[in-house]
């Protein structure tokens, strides 16, 4: 019993980071109905951002987070103009292919630079003991930072003029355009935000687990599962879905080898999409 409870709490901590990654995916979908297949690459970029900044430039690990957020935001805006803007209004197939193509380029460059070796960023934080349970400090701090970022995103979306413009565009792009909102700028900004969130999630994951250039695919799949659970386009659902996935992983890890996780997650993903097309935790969209 001891093991299970600890694993479940740890699952919640890790799951919140999955939620953060999924937030990036779901934000982009919510605003422009685009599935961003550079998502996995953005997560990996966050991981290697941490690795480079911490190991080569010797910035303290957690101090890289703002840099990665800003960098991800700027890269995201560039990506929007390269791979999405020209294709808005064309069949959705085209944007899936173009973002997939960019993903290939990024992963290809990463593989050329670092191969597929396992990387690890040593982060020394004291672990926290609570009664008979011990939790890793990195996991706790990752969950705390996730909460902070999600809170900041909430404040931005609901209490700033720009955030309200983002929501207006998500709600009805044509009406927003008529109301004088520069929708194209809002779209590129949202894409930037989505990529920044994915990068930040990647950075936090890299403080907890080792990673390779190819890790993006697995974490991208996790984000799909999370958005399926929470309802695509639903920010609150993404966080709840992330925690739910962390719980499921923590729980399942007690009964079967970790290598089965992907199979379970995929089955869950398809089952949820088919049975609850709008997500188990689908709240009304903001």
């Amino acid at each position: 019993m001891l093991g299970i409870i600890a694993a479940i709490i740890d699952g919640v901590l890790i799951g919140s980071v999955y939620g953060l990654a999924a937030l990036g995916l779901t934000l982009i979908w919510g605003v422009m109905e685009v599935i961003n297949l550079t998502h996995g690459a953005a997560i990996v970029a966050g991981m290697f951002g941490l690795y480079l900044l911490a190991n080569a430039v010797h910035i303290p690990p957690y101090a890289t987070l703002p840099l990665i957020l800003i960098g991800g935001f700027l890269v995201g805006i560039v990506l929007y103009w390269i791979s999405v803007h020209r294709l808005m209004g064309r069949p959705p197939l085209m944007i899936l292919l173009s973002t997939f193509a960019v993903n290939l380029v990024v992963i290809g460059l990463g593989t050329a630079a670092w191969g597929t070796d396992l990387f690890n960023v040593p982060v020394s934080l004291p672990s926290v003991t609570w009664g008979r349970y011990t939790f890793s400090g990195t996991h706790i701090l990752a969950a705390a930072l996730t909460t902070a970022i999600a809170g900041a995103l909430y404040l931005f979306l609901y209490h700033t003029k720009l955030g309200k413009a983002v929501r207006a565009v998500a709600n009805n792009r044509e009406a927003a355009e008529l109301a004088g909102i520069p929708t194209t700028r809002v779209l590129s900004l949202s894409f930037g935000l989505g990529v920044a969130l994915a990068g930040a999630a990647g950075m936090l994951i890299a403080t907890m687990f080792p990673f390779t250039v190819l890790s993006g695919d697995a974490y991208q799949l996790k984000s799909f599962v999370v958005t399926a659970l929470g309802g695509l386009g639903n920010p609150a659902g993404a966080l709840v879905g992330g925690i739910a996935l962390g719980l499921i992983e923590g729980f399942a890890g007690q009964f079967m080898p970790v290598s089965w996780t992907l199979v379970i997650e995929f089955v869950l993903f398809v089952a949820v999409l088919i049975i609850f097309p709008r997500g188990i935790f689908a709240f009304r969209r903001a």
Binding site: I82, S83, R86, L87, R90, M94, L97, S98, F100, A101, V102, N103, L104, V105, V106, I107, G108, L109, T111, A112
Partner: peptide
């Protein structure tokens, strides 16, 4: 060593310019 990069770039160019 840039096979993926080239496949990706090729795909992107086709999708953008010669769909």
């Amino acid at each position: 060593s840039f096979q993926l990069v080239i496949s990706g770039a090729l795909l992107l160019l086709i999708v953008l310019f010669v769909p």
